[in-house]
Measured scan of single mutants.
Amino acid sequence: MQRVNMIMAESPGLITICLLGYLLSAECTVFLDHENANKILNRPKRYNSGKLEEFVQGNLERECMEEKCSFEEAREVFENTERTTEFWKQYVDGDQCESNPCLNGGSCKDDINSYECWCPFGFEGKNCELDVTCNIKNGRCEQFCKNSADNKVVCSCTEGYRLAENQKSCEPAVPFPCGRVSVSQTSKLTRAETVFPDVDYVNSTEAETILDNITQSTQSFNDFTRVVGGEDAKPGQFPWQVVLNGKVDAFCGGSIVNEKWIVTAAHCVETGVKITVVAGEHNIEETEHTEQKRNVIRIIPHHNYNAAINKYNHDIALLELDEPLVLNSYVTPICIADKEYTNIFLKFGSGYVSGWGRVFHKGRSALVLQYLRVPLVDRATCLRSTKFTIYNNMFCAGFHEGGRDSCQGDSGGPHVTEVEGTSFLTGIISWGEECAMKGKYGIYTKVSRYVNWIKEKTKLT
């Protein structure tokens, strides 16, 4: 034993070699072989497995989906700052455009905790909710729209109204504003409101030439003092309507412009014939205590009207009353817009006519005020429907199939267009061939041609 100890002390290297040989010859039971080890760690190889990531292109799944990435790591994937920024906006807080917040056709661009709407022409605001041009839906104005110097929408209202708090709607500024039905039992019968379409306001006024200088022999019209197929109006439903009495009662109609003036057809009036105007009328054979009678003290036909040349060209006249009318729910003026808007309103496509005229061709006159909704007829169809001249200051309205029309005794009465609950004068009943005849239409004086003249002559002093 002493000898062994001496050998170990003198030859430590020998001992180490012996131990190493023993270990190498022993069977290893701690580690699995290569094949079995792979069965336990069965993990798919990654895209760049075996390579240094710093030297390969980034992978979106590896960089940002398996674990949260930084902007720089995302930049490695896209290799483009702009594309990385677009991805980053949604990656950080989701897609803010998912709810489609942009209105009126706006395009949404996502941002971090926010979004941006790219608005089409005519709109602005956070969600493109603000109209900035009158060309689109009248700028959301209830009545009139004008573009300011910086191309912003400025709404306005006709006389007797003021802008509401929203700067879009119009509200009454006087007790009985024009064009409004205020009798409670008839307010439910107000005709369907007309909503502004998209309009090209630059070209809204037709490029028409008034044929002022045409000389033409007097034409022989049949029954051209021209509501057939209409309905009984309720008291106060058309408070701007008046009836004219002269040699015979209810020979023509008219509309209240203001307390002192009536507008009617020029062919209705004769110099030297006494005319009485009755406002607030409903049943011409009954006294309903809503009527107001006034005498006409002055007749002003349009300066281009000449019955000797043509009885229905420039067929418009103004009547001055001896005493002002007292405005109330049964006696209310009709609204008159400017030339541009009167023309736009007419193009809405349908209007209402009213009167006490004959209820059928050569038949009896109506006792109760009649009204009828009539569609506008395109000019080409209008011209083809008659052998008589249709001037540019006239328009056609009615039904091709016949059966409904204005008729004798309705002449001078109103053709009105309702705009968001307020009625505007767009025409004056003038003439036609018979009444409600198939293929024939009622012919009306186009008020847009005469609004400046009306307003100039009827100013209240």
Rank of each mutant, 00 (worst) to 15 (best):
2 Q>W: 15
5 N>H: 12
6 M>I: 05
7 I>G: 14
13 G>I: 12
15 I>C: 05
17 I>T: 04
22 Y>R: 02
23 L>G: 00
26 A>I: 12
28 C>N: 02
31 F>L: 15
32 L>P: 07
36 N>Y: 04
38 N>V: 10
46 R>T: 10
47 Y>R: 05
51 K>R: 09
52 L>D: 07
56 V>E: 15
57 Q>R: 12
58 G>E: 04
60 L>I: 14
61 E>Q: 10
68 K>L: 06
71 F>W: 11
72 E>W: 05
75 R>Y: 06
76 E>N: 13
77 V>N: 15
81 T>M: 07
83 R>L: 11
83 R>Y: 09
87 F>P: 15
91 Y>C: 05
92 V>G: 15
97 C>K: 02
106 G>K: 02
107 S>H: 10
110 D>W: 15
114 S>L: 10
117 C>R: 02
121 F>R: 13
126 K>A: 13
130 L>E: 09
131 D>H: 08
137 K>M: 11
145 C>H: 01
146 K>Q: 11
150 D>G: 12
151 N>A: 07
151 N>R: 10
153 V>H: 15
154 V>P: 04
155 C>W: 00
156 S>P: 00
158 T>R: 01
161 Y>T: 00
161 Y>V: 01
164 A>T: 09
165 E>M: 13
170 C>Q: 00
171 E>S: 07
172 P>R: 06
173 A>F: 09
184 S>K: 07
191 R>Q: 08
191 R>D: 09
195 V>G: 12
197 P>N: 06
198 D>I: 12
202 V>D: 08
202 V>L: 13
209 T>Y: 10
211 L>C: 08
215 T>P: 07
230 G>M: 10
231 E>L: 07
234 K>I: 13
235 P>D: 04
239 P>I: 01
243 V>H: 05
246 G>S: 08
252 C>M: 00
255 S>Q: 02
256 I>F: 01
256 I>Y: 00
257 V>T: 00
263 V>R: 00
269 V>T: 04
270 E>F: 03
271 T>R: 03
273 V>H: 04
275 I>Y: 04
284 I>F: 13
285 E>R: 09
289 H>A: 07
295 N>E: 07
303 H>T: 11
310 N>M: 05
311 K>R: 11
312 Y>I: 09
316 I>Q: 00
318 L>H: 01
324 P>W: 02
325 L>Q: 00
330 Y>C: 03
334 I>A: 03
336 I>L: 13
337 A>V: 04
338 D>I: 03
339 K>L: 06
345 F>M: 09
346 L>F: 06
348 F>Q: 10
349 G>H: 09
350 S>H: 14
355 G>Q: 13
360 F>W: 12
360 F>V: 12
361 H>Q: 05
361 H>E: 07
362 K>C: 03
362 K>Q: 07
368 V>H: 14
369 L>C: 04
371 Y>Q: 08
371 Y>V: 15
373 R>W: 04
374 V>P: 05
376 L>S: 05
376 L>I: 13
378 D>S: 11
382 C>Y: 02
384 R>N: 15
385 S>G: 09
387 K>D: 14
388 F>D: 07
389 T>K: 07
395 F>G: 01
397 A>K: 02
399 F>E: 15
408 Q>H: 13
414 P>H: 09
416 V>C: 06
422 T>I: 14
424 F>T: 01
428 I>W: 05
428 I>N: 01
429 I>A: 14
429 I>D: 05
433 E>Q: 14
433 E>A: 13
437 M>D: 13
442 G>Y: 06
444 Y>K: 01
449 R>C: 15
449 R>I: 05
452 N>C: 05
452 N>G: 15
454 I>L: 08
